[in-house]
Design a protein around this nucleic acid. Structure first.
Lengths: 325, 325
DNA sequence: CTGAAAGCGCTTACAG
DNA sequence: CTGAAAGCGCTTACAG
């Protein structure tokens, strides 16, 4: 049986109230009592039960984090940053990999509520996730969910614009965009709108191809093949995800395109991992750490009642110059 | 105020006992009562408090997972698999990124105990993590921690052997190994022993270089430069990590080595991500999913009291043939 | 088929 | 400076 506060009290010869007081360092306690209690705790290897504490305090210091999957460089890094920052602030992370499945997201959301998390940070493309009156503090990354939910993102429109203009300035004459599932309401859509708008303004041909699920690349190859089959003269591609961009480079090279002479490619995300192992890829960098930091801080401020108005924060993107443009 | 079971009981006109019964589907309850309770729950949007439940049941369905960082393709994938499998089985994951820091690992371990996790899955190189009498069920991945802790790993020795032999069979005459921190007691050490033993048996020159921290590659470049400076005639390198292998390839190519003609390189881990975006890299594949599955299952079996003897499970590795050998 | 009571391990007014 | 009592939101014997 795990020792409880009563056992400590009995051994130290004090009341449970007193033990609780030294545990929480609250109220006046004589040094002598304090010492007795500490040595009793040590003697029986006492560990406080945070479940009981949370129950009483109505505060769990638990934060739910819902992402598509940590098995993706961008989200793996994002989750690592979020967890590290939470840890510094005394919060714990309950991890949920939704695999982009709306029903899973909903299940996770309910699970988090049952577990009395203080708040949740969510990356979802499922608008309907929070329909009911949600009093649970939440921050949505990259996505507007509802009026009461804060939003943290990087500037997706500007990212799309920057990527497109890089290709234009590099002299590409036929620039194609490849993106994820068109029916999903993802931040990548803003990148697409930016691409289409820029191309439109310049009176250029534009075309966007869609991959069923960007995060899991198995299905991307057919779309990539089709892109090159339809447009063998393509000389610029803006991919909404670095992994997609790399797959395109692989396929293009296998077809004899020389990079960047025949074809220029720019990706998106610029996670530390990709920049480290694939520095040649020109890409738009999302400021992952800033997004993580701001998400955690905004959430904790709301949890601790410091701020109430719903916030929307957009961080600037930047360009990583590789050699694929 | 969040609605509680009492509110449901009051509205449905029954006792809390009855509400609890329909919640847990235990004992006999008339359909009429059941309906009343359900509609009351719906009416006030009731969500059960799992903290209170866990407190009573002495079972949290929480599993702590300690890894160096999800910001690494191998651990990002491992954590995603572990979490998915836990979720299928009704368990939740409390994520801890130790960043390879022993003091953090210890803090996380204590935090997990306070939070009454049912068990923990840990990837650590910190032998001293569990000194005291730990009654907490645990599975260590890749590492023997103590007599009562199960171990799940892949065959690191055979992996090192296979990698070394591949280079030998490919005709390399000067094969060098590069590994992580020598003072850490990591699974990669077994790969190094295998390398050294095979080389020894063949009466060949061997030499291992060490990078301070394989998981965070910033410091690797100096070591890599030194390796090539000391041994410009190296024609085979076995790296204990794919990211390291990729950095070596980058540096070697910048120095004019042709791959694989002048230099052959083999990595380690073979995570899905690396195989997808860097298929040319020859590497040893660790069966991530099997490791995740076995860890979760072994842990849950112990938690549920199905098995008691400490187990050690070793899964076979395999070879990914790229073009770097 | 249903309810009153005790208890999971803690904390906090309230007394003293 | 310290303790007895009530309560956080649940569940489960035990009665009826």
């Amino acid at each position: 049986m795990k020792p409880k506060i009563q056992d400590v009290a009995r051994i130290a010869g004090v009341s449970t109230t007193t033990v609780s007081r030294v545990l929480n360092d609250r109220g006046y306690i004589s040094q002598k009592t304090r010492d007795k209690v500490y040595s009793a705790m040590k003697e029986i290897n006492y560990v406080p039960n945070d479940l009981a504490r949370s129950l009483f305090n109505k505060r769990s210091y638990l934060i739910g984090v819902i992402v598509p999957s940590t098995n993706h460089p961008f989200f793996g890094e994002l989750v690592a940053d979020i967890e590290n920052i939470c840890n510094e602030k005394g919060y714990k992370v309950l991890l949920c990999n939704s695999l982009h499945q709306p029903d899973k997201e909903k299940e996770y959301w309910d699970m988090l509520r049952r577990n009395q998390v203080d708040g949740v940070i969510v990356v979802t493309y499922n608008r309907g996730l929070i329909d009911e009156k949600q009093q649970l503090p939440a921050v949505a990354i990259d996505h507007y969910l509802s009026e009461n939910i804060h939003v943290v993102s990087s500037d997706n429109y500007k990212g799309g614009e920057m990527a497109t203009k890089e290709l234009i300035e590099a002299g590409c004459s036929k620039i194609i965009h490849i993106n994820g599932d068109a029916s999903l309401d993802t931040p990548a859509n803003k990148r697409m709108y930016a691409y289409e708008q820029v191309m439109n303004e310049e009176n250029r041909f534009y075309k966007t191809y869609h991959v069923p699920d960007v995060a899991f690349l198995d299905q991307s190859s057919d779309v990539i093949k089709k892109l090159f089959h339809d447009h063998p003269d393509v000389d610029g591609i803006f991919a909404s995800d670095d992994l997609l961009a790399i797959h395109i480079l692989q396929y293009a090279e296998s077809q004899g395109y020389r990079i960047p002479d025949d074809l220029k490619v720019i990706g998106y995300d610029g996670s530390g991992l990709i920049r480290s192992i694939y520095p040649s890829l020109t890409t738009i960098i999302q400021p992952v750490y800033e997004i993580a930091w701001s998400s955690v801080n905004t959430l904790i401020e709301e949890v601790e009642g410091k701020k109430t108005e719903t916030q929307e924060q957009v961080f600037p993107i930047s360009l990583w110059r590789g050699t694929t443009i």
